[in-house]
Nucleic acid binder design. Structure first.
Ligand SMILES: [Mn+2]
Ligand SMILES: [Mn+2]
Ligand SMILES: [Zn+2]
Ligand SMILES: [Zn+2]
Lengths: 142, 142
DNA sequence: AAGGAAAATTATAATGATTATAAAATAACA
DNA sequence: TGTTATTTTATAATCATTATAATTTTCCTT
């Protein structure tokens, strides 16, 4: 955790450690504001700009990846490896999906173009929301 | 062209026809502002809001697709079929790439999730820009 | 062809996520 | 412990997109 910051030549600060701690192993793909709201109680002086700055530098260093599956807001993923993201249009959650086109290993060459990065975004209805509909609307437990 | 509008129950206006004409067969993936700037000389009264409204209704009707390969701006594509987009980090152009994962035909089911839509975005250096570098910087014709 | 309702266009303001700025605080090194 | 570069913070600015409301236009009916 601390190593990630040192590796990038960044100073260790409580704010950065807290942000990294939230991200570590997190598969919920939080936005900058999500992280800010989660930390604000423990860090009353925390600034949203600090969260943005930290996420930007982590992304620039390849330690986290930006997920731009929604049109209005960026989300962040501590797993920097290219993998498939799925947005459920019903519950609005972003999920990892364990599928990746075999013929797309980076970096690669496609018709003379050098492919260095890739995003695969899927949209639909997650199995949880499908199940809810399947069970009918007679029991309205959202 | 006119049929697309009628099919969607929209009124035929000069502005909409002009926007559709620009889009027809266009593979440059223009933004709303690109289209606005191109039309403004011929339509001095044209409002940017009209361009946005038209693109939104066309996208909603499945006649064009939004391309969100850049983080700051939406681009539009008259080809509504899912296909692969590639952003060159050098020239900043968006290109179509003729590749699509075999195992991803829509709609489909992945682990219980219903997949209805998909975006595949690639990033790198296009063959044109690679050629320029290959030929060295001694002839500086950008 | 003229009238009129509904829809579209326009100018303009509002929104909201993100980025920039500059002063104050802090981390890390000697 | 002191010094300096970095970071945090509060705040303002940016800018693509969306909302609003008045004006204009389409298009169906007469
Ligand atoms: Mn993920
Ligand atoms: Mn395209
Ligand atoms: Zn869901
Ligand atoms: Zn290029």
């Amino acid at each position: 955790m601390i190593n990630k910051l040192k590796k990038m030549g960044l100073k260790i600060t409580p704010q950065r450690l807290a942000i990294l701690k939230i991200l570590d192993g997190n598969t919920s793909h939080p936005s900058a504001e999500d992280i800010y709201k989660e930390l604000k109680p423990q860090f009353p002086s925390l600034s949203l700009a600090t969260v943005y700055n930290t996420l930007e530098v982590l992304a620039g260093g390849g330690e986290v990846q930006e997920v731009r599956i929604k049109s209005d807001k960026k989300h962040f993923d501590p797993n920097p490896a290219p993998h498939c993201h799925f947005l459920c249009r019903v519950c609005d959650n972003i999920y990892d999906l364990d599928m990746w086109p075999e013929d797309l290993q980076l970096p690669c060459d496609i018709k003379g173009n050098l492919i260095q990065g890739c995003n695969l975004y899927l949209y639909g209805i997650c199995f949880r929301c499908r199940d809810k509909y399947k069970n009918g609307n007679n029991n309205n437990n959202n």
